[in-house]
Every structure is written in structure tokens, then in C-alpha cells.
Design a protein around this nucleic acid. Structure first.
Lengths: 192, 192
DNA sequence: ACCTGAACACCGTTCAAGT
DNA sequence: ACCTGAACACCGTTCAAGT
């Protein structure tokens, strides 16, 4: 006889993320997650394969919090907007966010975020044969910088310094892109 | 009566790193580390405060493997050389390397690596008030990119693609630096 | 179909005791 | 000073059993 399901995978991931936000990654225990959902630890195994699978799911679920930027914005504002969103997600989930840099970006969700960056880079005039490479670079700076901030790698600097940092980061990326833009013949694009 | 010490902190960190390289981060248990050193797990606590302390030590110990580049090289070759070294360290220690992005860079060792980058950036002509900021950006791309590669975030692409990626990364960084270089008045530096 | 009780092997950490 | 034996609370995971 079929029972009504009391929890599902999404609920498990949500509870896990909440615990990580409140008490850190080590606090995310099958026991703690189960407690928060009002079930026993064993019940979780119907919805996640293992703790590793649970963690992967939690990390990826953060991608949903990055909004799709309006497509009618200029490319540099689209990129800057995504960067800002990324920082907000990082600050909301400081314990989990850094793991994003270790998650293979081959899931449908990761792919869709990547497409957004492709679109902005195309609009910027980046040559087609460089688009994928440049996306990897741009995404890595944004991700790595946000991760470094929330994991305290830069030490505690003031919010004023952090704001300046991000304006500098935007300047850096815009300038770094130049050699890959075709309609700028004075700066040669890298071969291959 | 003083016994001869059979292990020290350096030996503990070395054994831990070797285990992580061979079998991954999860394989690094107090038991496994102790086994490799021929002692009991409890013996480790005289040399590390906790497992977290052990892991921090292992992560930081990787910094020793980055050689100091010859100071008489042009700045861009110094930077490129450090980037290459970083990639080699990452490939030697794929399980541990990504944690470098989460380690507060305030230890003497991290500070000394940072000074090297400062020196190269000064030689490049980066304005003094931008040096620290730019170092954070440049180090983050290099670290983040190497970490992404070894943790498989980019998926398995061919070694040919990877080489192209790194030439592109160097081009990107060189170009991104331009706005922060004082003796290039056509590109205004960011305010603050 | 979904959840639980009982059980298993393993984990990090402590503390008093040995040399 | 350095290492060990014994013990503790906790961890992820399994499997048969309940509804």
C-alpha cells in the first residue's frame, strides 16, 4: 500500500543547505538533516545515493539562485550583473559556495548558466573560436574571487575595500577581453 | 626520561599529502596517516592540534613546492613562470590543491609568495595604490584555473586544448593589467 | 512506496598510564 | 618528552521488517 511521501530530494537539499549556512559544512550530518526534516537518517537514502551525492546536489542547487540577466542589457552590464549575483549567493552560503569550483560543470543547470556567458561574450565581439576558452577564464575569476572572499582568504578587509576590489575586477575583465575581440585589429588575438 | 622522537610535524604532513595524492582526501584519516608512519593515531596529536589543523598544514605545505622565479627575468615571464609552477603543483596534488583557495593567505609562507607577485607587478608598472588589489585578482585567476582543471570542472579536454587555454590565460592577464599601469595614459586607471 | 530499528565498521578525540 | 591502551560519542551505510 503506497504511503504519502513526507520528504523529497529538493527538501533534503534545502535542509542541508540551511544547516551548512547556519553551522558550517561539518554540521551537515545525515542525522542533522534528518532531524530537521522530522525523519530518521535512513529515510534520506531513498532520495540521495550517499552523502557525497547529497553534497553535490546542495552545491549545484546554489546555481538556481543566480537570476538570468535581462538580455537587452549591454554585454558588459550583463557580465557585471552576473558577477554581482554570484557574490550575493556566495555571501548567503559561505560554507558551500567554494565547492562550486570543484563541481564538474556538466549538469544541465551549469550548462545553462554557461550559455548566458557565451551570449554576452558573443555580443562583446569575442571570436567564435575563443568563446569557450574565454568563458572558462571569465567564469573562473568571478567564481574564484567570490569564493576567496567568503572563505576569508583575503583576510577581513573593509566593505569599502571590497567594493573597490569589484570595480577593479570589472575593469580587469573588460580589458583582458580585448585581445579576443575580432574587430580590434591593433591587439592581435592569440593563435589556435 | 626523554625518548627520541620518532615522528615530527613535517613527517605527519608529508605522509598525509602522500595519502591524499594516492587515494583522495577521504582516505586521509588519523588511522591511515599513523599507519604510514608506524605509530598509533593518538601519537599524531602531539604534532597536530586536530584533523583540521593537520589539513591546513597539508594545504599550506604545497606552497613550498612553488619555486622562486629568477628575479632578473622580465615581469611577464616571472608571472608566467609562477603560473606554470602552480599548474604542476596542482597536477601533483589534485585532491588537496583546490583547498588552497579556501586557506586564509596570512601565513608567512603565503605572504612570501605574495611578495613575489608584488615585485613582478611593480616592475610591470602597476600603480602602488593598485598593487594589492591587482595581486588578489591575478593570484585568484591562476589559482582558480589550476584548481578547476585538476578537479575536473572543465570536463576532460585534450592536453592540446589545455595548452591553448594557458596561452589564452596569459594573454588575458597581460591585457587585463593594462588599465592599472600608470605610464599608459590612454587607458584610465580605476578611481579609488 | 516510503520509512524505521537494529546492527556494523569506522571515525576523531580524551586521558591516564607506560617508558 | 613521546607514545600507547582503553574508552567515548559520533559517523555513514546496510538490510530486513513494518505500514
Amino acid at each position: 500500500m503506497a504511503r504519502p511521501r513526507r520528504i523529497d530530494r529538493a527538501a533534503v537539499l534545502r535542509a542541508s543547505l540551511a544547516i551548512a549556512d547556519e553551522a558550517g559544512l561539518d554540521a551537515v550530518t545525515m542525522q542533522a538533516v534528518a532531524d530537521r526534516l522530522g525523519v530518521t537518517p535512513m529515510a534520506l537514502y531513498r532520495h540521495v545515493d550517499s552523502k557525497g551525492d547529497l553534497l553535490d546536489g546542495v552545491v549545484e542547487s546554489m546555481l538556481d539562485e543566480i537570476p538570468v540577466p535581462p538580455a537587452d542589457l549591454p554585454w558588459d552590464q550583463q557580465l557585471a550583473g552576473m558577477g554581482r549575483s554570484l557574490r550575493e549567493v556566495a555571501r548567503r552560503h559561505p560554507a558551500v559556495f567554494p565547492l562550486l569550483l570543484q563541481l564538474p560543470a556538466k549538469t544541465p543547470r551549469a550548462r545553462s548558466r554557461r550559455e548566458q556567458v557565451y551570449a554576452a561574450l558573443r555580443e562583446a565581439g569575442v571570436a567564435p573560436q575563443h568563446i569557450e576558452r574565454v568563458e572558462r577564464i571569465v567564469s573562473t575569476v568571478a567564481l574564484g574571487y567570490a569564493a576567496s572572499e567568503v572563505s576569508g582568504r583575503f583576510g577581513g578587509h573593509s566593505s569599502r575595500t571590497i567594493d573597490g576590489d569589484h570595480r577593479a575586477l570589472e575593469t580587469f575583465v573588460r580589458a583582458g577581453l580585448q585581445p579576443f575581440i575580432t574587430d580590434q585589429p591593433d591587439q592581435p588575438a592569440t593563435p589556435d
